[in-house]
Amino acid sequence: MTLAITKGARNALVFFAILATVGFFLPDYRLLVVNQHLFLALNVLALNFCLGLGGQISLAQGGMAGIGAYASVIAHSHFPQASVIVVPVVVLAAFGFAAAVSRPMERLGEGFLAMATLGVSLIFTNVVLTMGEVTGGSAGLMVDSRLYVPGLGELSGDRTFFFLFLSVMACGCWMFAALKDSRPGRALLACKDDPLAASSCGIDRAALRSLSFGLGGAVSAMAGVLHAHYGGFINPEQFSLELSLKALLFLVIGGPGNLVRPLAAVMILETVMSGMQFLGEARTLAHGLLLTAALLAGYWRSIRPIPMLTIAARSVAPGRKPM
């Protein structure tokens, strides 16, 4: 234990300090927007486990958040006030499910993996639609139950949920940082850099990557649980492909493997984007241009330090590049 704080840890502390300050002073109804963005940010963090550590693209984050939300709401309707048991069970189940699903997919190449995980998301949506009697189908479900913590009572209110989202995010960030610095974390990074070399060093790639996938699934599911009990109404559209794509988009903008930057990207860009309301129908175009600009800005920043010679040598789009 040293007292010297690393740059990453300092950034994280600054980020959370700013967010917490914002959370203290915003009026309730403004906090709703921040909380909606925090839900997305949690999904970005979840994806960071799969992509930033394991180097595996996933478009299943929306589906995982949905599984968390629906499972928790349905379980709560049978066992109200059992949140202390229900929530961990749901999150663990999501962990197990994500880990199990990812195992056979581990060996798929980038494009195929994207397709397969996208399929998981679409299957989730369609199953929800088909099982209308349990899930309410596309009309959605009203969430009557609240999260209940013995001693604290029912959790409700914007500020409570703001700090819930924030603490889940802090836990997730700590887990991410701890995992990254651990032996399995380094093994995961090795898988990301060169899967073949990693497995030839005796790393059990499938097991490790299903761990990172599982953790990602669990964080997403937790985000879904909070989102459901906070918003009070869930429908399949909230957990559609759009959520998965957005999570991937923001993670790439911030840089996979970075802890704070993607989260900051979500909070800043989403706030800017929801401020574009006055544009009306031109908003889609403006969002597209803004995201393109953000992607290119990150790219240009990353190539700046490279001397001209190396650029010239790399003017080919080869099959595989480091993230």
Binding site: V252, R283, L285, T292, L295, G298, S302, R314, S315, A317
Partner: peptide, 25 residues
């Protein structure tokens, strides 16, 4: 973005699809 990571290129096409949809609207 010829030297960018494949993921960034992929996401550029997602952003492009949003832009073009916006143009269509």
């Amino acid at each position: 973005s010829i030297n960018a990571s494949p993921l960034r290129q992929l996401m550029l096409t997602v952003a492009a699809s949003l832009c073009w949809q916006g143009v269509a609207i």
